[in-house]
Write a protein that binds this DNA or RNA. Structure first.
Length: 559
RNA sequence: UCCGAGAUCGUUUAAUGGUAGGACGACGGGUUCUGACCCCGUUAAUCUAGGUUCGAAUCCUGGUCUCGGAACCA
């Protein structure tokens, strides 16, 4: 068993396999991803998407995309569009696109059937009274005075609720179950409530809208879903899910299976909190590269394959967990290492003057776009007397383990020459304005004919040829691993003031025509992605993720 | 005080009564024209107390802790 380098199964997969083995559902597997269109999808949804679509893929079944649009107050078609885009971008294709609102007619018929069976009634208690009558965890509820009214009366009232004869809150349709049930969900739960609100799809056709518990399971049944996967907070609702299907004596009975939702360190994951970040202007929108939304991660440069792989690695179970952001970053690097062309970019420029290199001379060095995969091709990189290097690659007073440029030290300029630092020029305030070096003409192409070794190779750009670029150095949005663990759950108290550092840097001339979405590696600096707002005249890159950095670790240890 | 669920290396995930394994991280080393990638090694866990058994992470009992649940939200 131990020699299993493929990721193990998970309990949902095992349930489906078992069902298949036993011939349940006629050997059919049908799942669905049922988002409410009231916000943008995030990495937590990606877990659910990968699970549901993955199940269908693995077992030759189907997976529907169904919008759970039963509360017109919060829902909007803008969200539907973004959700569809995100699911497709992740690489999944739904067998059918449905809306819970497609089933409003059928649901209404079923509601009337429940009334006729004596299993539902129209209640005229106020919202406050309903709450009061429901009791609490420790004390049983008491029956509504309208509980036993004749079915005919409820039928008539429901019809009039539908036609808009009553104000919101005046009447509701409730299931008649058990007001003293241990599970609060069974104390005559609501089925329909009145809302005089225009629905994003059905317009003003309805003045009543079905509640989740009623609509969701029955929608599953209508679509012939076999395995209805949802998150843990619905565990207490499963009994109701089953009750409606049984009460209506439907011939299909989907099985609800609950799993633990994803928590990621250094981020928050609820739509409500993400919306508040957007509304408060903490971020620039749902697709801000710092957001854990699918659209934010896309803009930041996370490849869909990396996200899918991450979802596979984290597994599926029923215990609460907090997945380390480092695992997501690992998946992103692993993918980008194989797929991203290498280029040179300078994030914090410092000028280097090659004293013995002729003024006005320009030569070109060939550099492959990928160290091991020739199919990426190569480009010519211009070299001249004045260069930009990254300020992190030079130190005047270097500690022992610093291998980069420092007075008297020789390093290699990638693909170009060995250079040796011979001096530093400063302004009157002591700030370094330029590093002076000499180069070894024999080392052209970065070769070392005499076998001379150099500790490191650094990246560089010909100052005259470099393209200015705005660099968005994306970091975590929060400084705490669990932002919700801050006092009173005030997650905004640990917002990271440096969540996005904006730098004016340079990139090599081969980047002149890159389009938004283009992903590449700035050698030694990290993976970057061209931002959606980037133009030919104003290049903008988002740092997708840094490189793993041993030097940074050493520096950290020194402190 | 009620109902439901869950506790395995720092994190995450395996084991389905039979050697507690993998991944990420951390640490150390090798390699290197990216202090990257890659390779090798080290670290490190069954919530607790009993019981059943030749044998328990797994089964039983009692504790403890964590999470979810009382919207005309989903």
């Amino acid at each position: 068993m131990a020699e299993n380098n493929e990721v193990g199964s998970n309990f949902v997969r095992e349930i489906v396999e078992e069902d298949l083995k036993n011939g349940k559902n006629g050997g059919r597997v049908a799942t669905r991803f049922p988002p409410e269109p009231n916000g943008y999808l995030h990495i937590g949804h990606a877990k659910s998407i990968c699970l549901n679509f993955g199940l269908a893929q693995r077992f030759g079944g189907t997976c529907n995309l169904r919008f759970d649009d039963t509360d017109p107050v919060k829902e909007d078609t803008e969200y539907c569009d973004s959700i569809k885009e995100d699911v497709e971008w992740l690489g999944f294709h739904w067998d059918n696109l449905y809306f819970a609102s497609d089933y409003f007619d059928q649901l209404y018929e079923w509601a009337k059937e429940l009334i006729r069976k004596g299993k539902a009634y129209v209640c005229e208690l106020t919202p406050e009274q309903i709450r009061e009558y429901r009791g609490n965890f420790y004390t049983p509820g008491k029956p509504s005075p309208w509980r036993d009214r004749p079915a005919e009366e409820s039928l008539d009232l429901l019809e009039r609720m539908k036609n808009g004869e009553f104000k919101e809150g005046e009447r509701v349709l409730r299931a008649k179950i058990d007001m003293s049930h241990k599970n609060m969900n069974m104390r005559d739960p609501l089925i329909y409530r009145i809302k005089h609100v225009t629905h994003h799809r059905t317009g003003d056709k309805w003045c009543i809208y079905p509640m989740y518990d009623f609509a969701h399971g029955l929608s599953d049944a209508i679509e012939g879903i076999t395995h209805s996967v949802c998150t843990l907070e619905f565990e207490d609702h499963r009994i109701l899910y089953d009750w409606f299907i049984d009460a209506l004596e439907l011939d299909r009975h989907p099985q609800q299976i609950e799993f633990a939702k994803l928590n990621l360190s250094y981020t928050v994951m609820s739509k409500r909190r993400l919306l508040s970040l957007v509304k408060d202007g903490v971020v620039c929108g749902w697709d801000d590269p710092r957001m854990p939304t699918i659209s934010g991660m896309r803009r930041r440069g996370f490849p869909p394959e990396a996200i899918r792989n991450f979802c596979e690695l984290i597994g599926v179970n029923k215990r609460d967990s907090m997945v380390d952001l480092a695992l997501l970053e690992h998946c992103v690097r692993e993918n980008l290492n194989d797929t991203a062309p290498r280029i040179m970019g300078v994030t914090k420029p410092i000028k280097v003057l090659i004293e013995n290199y002729p003024e006005g001379k320009v030569e070109y060095f060939e550099g492959p776009f990928h160290p091991t995969d020739d199919s990426f091709g190569s480009r010519k990189i211009p070299f001249s007397r004045e260069l930009w290097i990254d300020s992190s690659d030079f130190m005047e007073d270097a500690p022992k383990k610093f291998f980069r440029l420092t007075p008297g030290r020789e390093v290699r300029l990638r693909y170009a020459y060995f250079i040796k630092c011979v001096g530093v020029d400063k302004d009157e305030n002591g700030n370094i304005i330029q590093v002076r070096c000499t180069y070894d003409p024999e080392s052209a192409g970065g070769k070392s004919p005499d076998g001379r070794k150099v500790k490191v190779t650094i990246h560089w750009l010909s100052a005259a040829h470099a393209l200015p670029a705005e660099l968005h150095m994306v970091n975590t949005l929060f400084t705490e691993e669990d932002p919700m663990a801050t006092p009173e759950g005030d997650f905004k108290s640990c917002l990271n003031p440096n969540s996005m550092e904006i730098l004016q840097g340079y990139v090599e001339p081969s980047m002149a025509d890159v389009k938004p979405g283009y992903r590449c590696q700035f050698e030694r600096m990290g993976y970057f992605c061209v931002d959606t707002d980037s133009t030919k005249d104003h290049l903008i890159f988002n740092r997708t993720v840094t490189m793993r950095d041993d030097w940074a670790q050493i520096q950290k240890q020194g402190n």
